[in-house]
Design a protein around this nucleic acid. Structure first.
Length: 259
DNA sequence: CCCTACCCCTGGGGGC
DNA sequence: TGCCCCCAGGGGTAGG
């Protein structure tokens, strides 16, 4: 559910509320995430001050004094809330009386001590057409599968990968390695602009309930979605779903506009 | 290394 | 109303 724009929105709210506070306790939900968080490591963080919250792709990295850190991921259905208890609490972190709760019905979220290997941040200079072209060269997997691969570029999920391919006018099933230079250029720019606009709009809240920020506020980026979850694209054409599963999920595209 | 299939879960919606 | 099947914004891992 949460992709880069949603996680970035969460990060900003958390930073405003929690920076400078000390982790005083934590509690696992019953049940907690399907992968049990590393309790001895989390226990070691108690008494430390939260100095920085960074976002790496879809991960949140909480940095404490003394080089200690905790990495959080929201999986498919997770959200972070400040304040009152939620129905599917999997992990709670207490910061001097302020409660950070991860609510996650499907339990795919996780808490860990270190980040996996991630590709470049799409909104930073390290991501550009030359870098992307290099990573796609010779690859036979569908372009959409590689956009969803966090080692190629960090932070895209099904919504924004779908939107970026539409904006770049590229079919999701094309082999990544055959994309032309100008197509990769369009794709790079599309990823940047889609994500930038979505961050400015505070992320996408598609179904009522799904994503909300830590204070319970929905995003507004769903209003500018042109393809994902629609039957007719913003271009006015009927959209098509691939029969084939690409990168673990079905792909949606406009057969008229995307080549 | 590359690529695909499959697994980890729960809840909501549609069809019957 | 109930049941069953399908679907979902993610990622790790095991094979070929």
């Amino acid at each position: 559910m949460p992709e880069l724009p949603e996680v970035e929105t969460v990060r900003r709210v958390l930073a405003e509320r929690l920076l400078g506070k000390t982790l005083t306790a934590y509690a696992l939900g019953k049940p907690t995430f399907y992968r049990k968080p590393p309790e001895t490591e989390i226990t070691r963080l108690i008494g430390r001050k939260l100095e920085e919250i960074q976002r790496k792709g879809k991960y949140l990295q909480l940095r404490f004094n003394g080089e200690a850190e905790l990495v959080l991921h929201l999986g498919m259905s997770g959200s972070i809330r400040l304040g009152e208890p939620t129905p599917h609490e999997r992990l709670r972190l207490d910061f001097e009386g302020e409660f950070l709760r991860i609510n996650d019905p499907r339990r795919f979220g996780r808490a860990a001590c270190k980040l996996p290997t991630l590709g470049p941040e799409p909104l930073e200079e390290s991501f550009n057409a030359v870098v992307l072209a290099e990573k796609l060269r010779g690859r036979k997997a569908p372009i959409k599968a590689l956009l969803l691969d966090q080692r190629i570029v960090a932070g895209l999920g099904n919504i924004y990968a779908t939107e970026a391919l539409f904006e770049a006018r590229i079919r999701p099933g094309r082999a990544a390695g055959v994309l032309r230079r100008n197509e990769i250029g369009r794709l790079t720019e599309a990823i940047r602009s889609i994500l930038t606009r979505a961050v400015e709009a505070g992320g996408s809240t598609l179904d009522d309930q799904a994503y909300v920020d830590p204070l319970g506020r929905p995003g507004r980026a769903q209003d500018s979605i042109k393809v994902y979850g629609r039957e007719t694209g913003a271009c006015g054409h009927a959209l098509k779903a691939t029969r084939r599963i690409i990168g673990g999920r079905r792909a949606l595209y406009c057969p008229e506009c995307q080549l």
